[in-house]
Design a protein around this nucleic acid. Sequence first.
DNA 1: GTTATAAATGTAAGCGCTTACATTTAATGT
DNA 2: ACATTAAATGTAAGCGCTTACATTTATAAC
Lengths: 334, 334
Amino acid sequence: MATIYEVSKLAGVSLATVSRVMNNNANVSDATREKVTRAMTELGYRPNSIAQSLASNCSNSVGLLVSELHGPFYGPMMSGIETAFRKQGKHVIIAAGHSNEEREQQAIEFLISRNCDALILHVEAISDDYLIELSKGKTPFVLINRYIAELSSRCIILDNVKGGYLAAKYVLEQGHTDIAYISGPLWKKDAQDRLTGHKQALAEYNLSFNEQLLYQGDFMEDGGAAGFQYLHNNGPQFTALICANDEMATGAMATARECKLKLPEQLSIMGYDNVFFTRHVYPPLSTINYPINEMGRMAADWVLSNVYQKNTPPLQTLFEPELIIRQSVLTHPQ
Amino acid sequence: MATIYEVSKLAGVSLATVSRVMNNNANVSDATREKVTRAMTELGYRPNSIAQSLASNCSNSVGLLVSELHGPFYGPMMSGIETAFRKQGKHVIIAAGHSNEEREQQAIEFLISRNCDALILHVEAISDDYLIELSKGKTPFVLINRYIAELSSRCIILDNVKGGYLAAKYVLEQGHTDIAYISGPLWKKDAQDRLTGHKQALAEYNLSFNEQLLYQGDFMEDGGAAGFQYLHNNGPQFTALICANDEMATGAMATARECKLKLPEQLSIMGYDNVFFTRHVYPPLSTINYPINEMGRMAADWVLSNVYQKNTPPLQTLFEPELIIRQSVLTHPQ
DNA sequence: GTTATAAATGTAAGCGCTTACATTTAATGT
DNA sequence: ACATTAAATGTAAGCGCTTACATTTATAAC
């Protein structure tokens, strides 16, 4: 592999000049720029990005931490991020935290030790304190789907209260009054918020929230299954079930069907996230759209703007959920 | 950030010695190792991986190129790979090729310019020739789901002929004789192979393959939808439809249902890949398992073994498909 | 034609490590 | 105790770039 040295020799200029044309910043005369470019192509020169990083103290890499690399939620997020960065010649290093505190911490340290210029984090288990502490370090980061007041300007979030509200309101509008709810783990802010929104809508309809119709799930399929089972056996009657995310809705649907319920005739079901496969389940699931791809792009823009001083479209930090109507919720026959 | 220099000063030894304890290779006495380690923790020293890379000419990074970062197929693959590498302190740089020749090439060049020690490629559009040429370069790579005779030892593949055979055989065993087939793009080797296996099974049952019952799809949902539409309108009758992958099966199911067919009663459907959401569609889709997660891990092991000289479990290059029976295929009433 | 000023280029010192080689120290045999 | 050999440590030259600063060259002003 040719080095900058050989290029400079062939072109008959100094190292610095070659470097200048590479980074086309300083003033280089058209003539020498031409000479150098020609020498580069002649030698098939490709700059060594490692050396560039060491000398410039900038690795051009950003670390991306998600809970899982698989799973319907993270794909679109990573996708949005990778696209935005590659356009700018930055690369993304991925790591998975598996919703586990220790592993999330390890992943962050791994990414930092890899000299990432910035981090994009979707973390669940790690504490606010850790993140606040981290923010004092030298590696800047953005948070996706997590709000910490002290770090508010770098939190890219969805208005989950509103999402919860939208879901419940829609179901209420269809005439349902006996509505069960399977929440996420309530120590998670997003799970709380969605429930808050849910209750808000209920209140608007002058319905009180029945604690017996609440089951605390885990945001995973099994939680939905267990939740339905529990509510079906122990709770009061209900004609609609709202789940705090799509996977739980899917689990609940499968179990409901096992219990010989006809869907959606005997039970309306509502999801949350609008994960891509919701179109494919049967009946196609009505849900709340979570614009995770856009939020990923926004996170990328955040670092492009704040870390790499690039011009980007205006940054946005709060995203809006949106109701997606499909066929899993039926009008309740008065 | 403390550097190796400060550590050496604090510990009262030379740079080289510190480097030695870091890479714990050479002979260092326990006493000095101890001294150095203490100095390191005292200073909170973390080696600068960029500098290490430059000096050692090894970036400890491997490039991973997939068609899409989202999509049900790639998630488990990336997951297997990331896990394997992080355990060994290697990091993975991801890029998406979008099944497009130019973008795949760009991505490969990007990854190489990033000084990846090795590449793991899941490419579709790029030519064999390009890859053969690439193999002469200095960056080693493995191919997933692609077989090139000249590069056979670095091709990690599934026996797609067998998979196609398995799917057809199962449907035949259920008594179906009029079987439609939606293939992938037939210029792709895997699409061809699956079809070959399909025909093989048919032949075993003394059934001739009816070209009118074949539709060439695109491995995407829309292709499945269009395929069903076409076959339904133009082809002879059929009681079963085999699709060359799950997304097309999903598309076909949706369209079949729009045409008022009852599934699976009026049409049995078979998929391929066993992508995770096949459990969730209705009726749950019978399919062929593609052990993509394991294959990803194997690709990682390949580079760990061949590039980083690590000990790994024995390498395997050919994986076996497996029949997954769910509820989308019904016994054909004689 | 000078001088002042800006533009273009060159020089050389790093960036923080690894590693070949040289040197010192310890271990072993006699 | 001395020579021989192995183990432990040190020295210093890179790895391929960037960039502050110095120098040279072109441009403008008078």
